[in-house]
Write a protein that binds this DNA or RNA. Structure first.
Length: 427
DNA sequence: TCTGGGGTCCTAGGACCC
DNA sequence: TCTGGGGTCCTAGGACCC
């Protein structure tokens, strides 16, 4: 019994770019259209984006590259190392295009966004979705899929279906149950590996069955997020559209090594580099950190060597974004957790307890030095922005590249550089 | 030989206080 | 010798997302 006219319900669209990283590479390389293409993660480690053709061959998402090398060779799959500067740039263009439709938009990740379509008339919704697709494709060259329904979770379902049956746009409003019956539990947004296992053990293997379990059972067996997912499948909106841009609460920079690292010295170099990059990132957002975590680990996959993983967190007396102070603390932390005799595979740092840097101006404990350091940091950031990342660094970061990432398949496209613009020859 | 990186949120349990 | 109970805050670890 409801007084609410169903047409008054929320309508939320999820716009998701198809094989986003692959699509970005294709923009600048027409010859790989319709061909199997794969983009690899940092260090050329795993498959993180696949074209439809590559999916058909049987290359799985997240699979280690070395395991699919044979498949790649046999099928002439085009391989690319990831180029995040390019993907970030294309992403901004896609989102800008989306904003030409509505301000009520939540940028959810690099390749997807929720848009509120509640104001669109019922009979126009699907066409509107088609128009969004068309414009993004025309203005940016990126193909998308659009799923629309009453809640975020349902629009995720709709989007998933649109991707699978290649219709481009799905407005899920009637016969939702039929769709949910064919929707595997593990594909539901918010249901990961662990929850899938739990649900399947309890004979809940489709979205439809999850929708119909009792509230008390979900709450007891999972947590509030589990309960929210169930409500959302019922069409009751529990997860709001976050249209305000928020600043990050922590900032992590970490990398696997191209080659295993044993010495403290090399770890110091990498941690210093990561720390400088993280500090620059938070300065860019006018933030300061109160806490810094350093972590190192050996490979969890190597069955023949002993595994070691450790981290330490240091609270700073006063929040800062000063690279030199942060690096000093990071080095202290690293010495605490470093153990000789291991072959390290990855190292990183996390800056946390981030706040707005303006908040520190009122803090009487802030040393006068802070002003001096701020001027220095500004000069460094300016120079690095102008002459390229790490144009100015500190000696501690090292110049020997032996531990740095592998990146053997880069397309080297840089949309911020004139040198990489396609050339047109007029005769 | 080779298995990514960067986030958020939730919760159990410990520390602490009265 | 006996050794409470309830509240809050914090954090590490886990689960999830892309």
């Amino acid at each position: 019994m409801s007084y609410i006219n169903s047409s008054k319900k929320n309508k939320i669209a999820l716009i998701d770019c198809n094989s986003f990283y692959v699509s970005c590479e294709r923009l600048f390389n027409p010859k790989i259209k319709k061909k199997p293409v794969v983009v690899l993660s940092n260090n050329d480690g795993c498959v993180i984006s696949r074209s439809t053709e590559a999916k058909k061959i049987g290359i799985k998402m997240g699979e280690p590259y070395f395991k699919v090398k044979e498949l790649v060779r046999k099928n002439n799959v085009y391989i690319f190392s990831s180029n995040y500067a390019l993907y970030g740039d294309i992403s901004r263009r896609v989102m800008k295009t989306l904003r030409s439709f509505s301000d009520k938009i939540e940028i959810y990740s690099i390749d997807e966004a929720f848009v509120d379509l509640s104001h669109i008339e019922e009979k126009e919704v699907e066409n509107y979705g088609k128009e969004i697709r068309k414009r993004i494709l025309k203005w940016t060259g990126i193909p998308t899929s659009v799923g629309i329904s009453n809640t975020k979770t349902l629009s995720k379902v709709a989007n998933h279906i649109a991707k699978e049956n290649r219709t481009g746009v799905i407005y899920l409003k009637e016969n939702i149950d039929e769709s949910l019956k064919n929707f595997h539990i593990s594909e539901v947004w918010g249901v990961g590996k662990q929850l899938s296992k739990l649900y399947i053990k309890n004979e809940i293997d489709t979205a439809y069955k999850l929708k119909n379990i009792s509230n008390s059972w979900v709450k007891k067996s999972t947590n509030v997020l589990g309960a929210k997912t169930v409500m959302e499948l019922r069409g009751i909106s529990c997860i709001n559209l976050e249209t305000e841009e928020t600043k990050r609460k922590s900032c992590c920079v970490s990398r696997s090594f191209g080659r295993k690292v044993e010495s403290l010295e090399k770890l110091q170099e990498s941690i210093t580099t990561h720390c400088l990059n993280a500090a620059e990132k938070i300065r860019n957002d006018n933030q300061i950190a109160r806490s810094i975590t350093i972590f190192i680990r050996t490979s969890p996959f190597d069955k023949h060597k002993k595994y070691y993983s450790n981290s330490t967190t240091i609270d700073l007396p006063v929040s800062t974004s000063d690279s030199l102070q942060l690096v000093k603390k990071a080095m202290e932390g690293l010495k605490k957790i470093y153990k000789y005799g291991y072959f390290y595979q990855k190292a990183g740092i996390i800056l946390s307890k981030l706040t707005d840097s303006s908040e520190n101006e009122l803090n009487l404990l802030t040393p006068i030095m802070e002003n001096k350091s701020r001027t220095l940091m500004k000069a460094i950031d300016f120079t690095n922005a102008k002459y390229g990342r790490n144009a100015i660094s500190i000696a501690q970061a090292g110049i020997d590249n032996s531990w740095k990432m592998r990146k053997e398949h880069s397309s080297k496209i840089d949309t911020a550089s004139f040198a990489y613009l396609p050339k047109v020859i007029a005769t």
